[in-house]
Design a protein around this nucleic acid. Sequence first.
DNA 1: TCGATGAATGGGAACGTTCCCATCATAGGT
DNA 2: ACCTATGATGGGAACGTTCCCATTCATCGA
Lengths: 341, 341
Amino acid sequence: MPRRATIIEVAREAGVSKTSVSRYFSGERDKLSPALCERIAAAALRLDYRPNQMARGLKGGRSRLIGMLVADIRNPFSVAVMHGVERACRERGLALLVCNTDNDPELERTHLGLMAAYQVEGLIINASGSPDAELQALTDQGMPLVLLDRELGTVQADLVGLDNARAIDLALDHLAEQGYGELLYLSEPPERASPRRKRLTRFQEGLAARRLAGEAYTMSGSDEEMQRAIEAFLTRSAHKGSGDVPRALLCANGAVTLAATRAMQRLGARLGKTGLMGIDELDWCALIDPGITTLAQPTEAIGQQAVASLLAKPNSQADAKARQHRFEPKLIARGSTRLTG
Amino acid sequence: MPRRATIIEVAREAGVSKTSVSRYFSGERDKLSPALCERIAAAALRLDYRPNQMARGLKGGRSRLIGMLVADIRNPFSVAVMHGVERACRERGLALLVCNTDNDPELERTHLGLMAAYQVEGLIINASGSPDAELQALTDQGMPLVLLDRELGTVQADLVGLDNARAIDLALDHLAEQGYGELLYLSEPPERASPRRKRLTRFQEGLAARRLAGEAYTMSGSDEEMQRAIEAFLTRSAHKGSGDVPRALLCANGAVTLAATRAMQRLGARLGKTGLMGIDELDWCALIDPGITTLAQPTEAIGQQAVASLLAKPNSQADAKARQHRFEPKLIARGSTRLTG
DNA sequence: TCGATGAATGGGAACGTTCCCATCATAGGT
DNA sequence: ACCTATGATGGGAACGTTCCCATTCATCGA
């Protein structure tokens, strides 16, 4: 079983020093004479040589590895962003080490340690818990950090994600415009994840200005529970003073949209007559009968920006302030928010 | 900015040799006296020491890294399997390096080289092209290899995936049982991916025994093209000798199911009256009106088995024959294959 | 009592790179 | 012609770990 060739063997084969070979493969070819380059290239090809990244990482700390911590890898949004991250890494010659925490803070801590052990050059984090201490320790050691989607209490790091306020505003405007007057906002428990909090409060703040009535429901438990909440919202008598105003559901993310759609079907509610709208565009939103209106996140752009932010070293210390990159959602209007009345 | 502590510093802090510290962290604690263990543990804790995986990987080749090459990371099936792989790795203290090839054979070759450069200890491959030569080179160097879902011409390696024959048989039985007599099999181009070929031929072989009429359509181009094919299938006159037999569509995988569902909606065909069934269970299959019947793959199990196979060293040379682990799909019957007529 | 056995520990070389520094031409300014 | 800058090249130490071997010391059978 042939072992992989080393830099020394290439050097011998080419009749040059290992330093020159190292230079050749570290992108310093311009420092070498064309003749040397050619001989090295030939020798490397003959021996099928590839630099050993482990050894590289050991010496200069240049592991060329980026770590990405994903809270839930089965969430299509996360995967879409990951696709962008992966692409951006590839363009820069970086490899991506992905860890999934399954929303388990304990696992998150473990994986954070793991990535550090692999000397990743940067970390993109879609947090599940609040590993503030661990992250602070890492940044203190000079590890570049970017937060994805979710902010984290005390950690001073760039953040890339959706412009949540804008998203809620767009949603409220659209729903109001379409004639819905009473809204039910559906969300997963907001305590942990900052975007959920942000969206929820913006929802509540945004009602008055648009003369909308609304309330929020946090789905803590089962689908059935949420179904009951929706039923209560839909069947109870109208708010005082208003006639029977059309009602609509606003879903905080893709998972909620899925659950809400399921509930609506079980209740036999007609989409459109009862409005339904969600943040996150999914494969099937166009397929459910009149189509479900969504706010699509520019996932690819978010992923690319995450890597860009990671690699943009702040040039001055004063410049090291945490930046935020907020992306605009795109409204995809469909039948679920059309009162065909 | 404090640098990460090294093994030498821990050794000094604990007043022992670096060898002992190394032993402590390499799971050879039983070779050390309890007193030593205790001192090392304390020192490591004080300095917040973590072994540097790069250095580890360099010395003994023990990178503790598993590489996974995914043809299309946005395919929910791939992600679900990846979830299983990731979990299995975690349980064994392995980290996972994931690369997405976006179905680009060129990129696949690049990434294969990348993973080799990181000294991964094993490779799980969901191939997009046919990197036979590269893979053969790797196996020759003793790299454990497992093929996921897709076979690869000449490469001698274990394979983990669905029992495709069984899946098609189940589908045909179900459709026949439900009263459908003429079938249209929809698939993406089969030349590249072995499961597509296998499913297609099994479909064709299986028709006669069940007295079914059937044909296959390969969607090479646009959605519209496929829509026309479906329309032609649904509207043309019945086969000679038979009356007007109920017709059904069978989709080779999740992506096809999505496209077919879209087409059916555009054609205004009622699901159930026209049968629809697909391989791969997806979030939304229960949501489309009468529900779409699917064959669910045990993705988690497949992922776990992939890692298990990878790590199971063949004990004898004769034992090194390529093994196949074929998993049973599970039928999830819904309205789309119910003739409510 | 003595060498053999074995367990606990430590010293040092290797792993494959990068990078600092030294060397050696060659050219340019005086 | 000499001294210095400049550019190409090579030698060797480091990076943090593992692993082979050596050492020490106690135990044990004869």
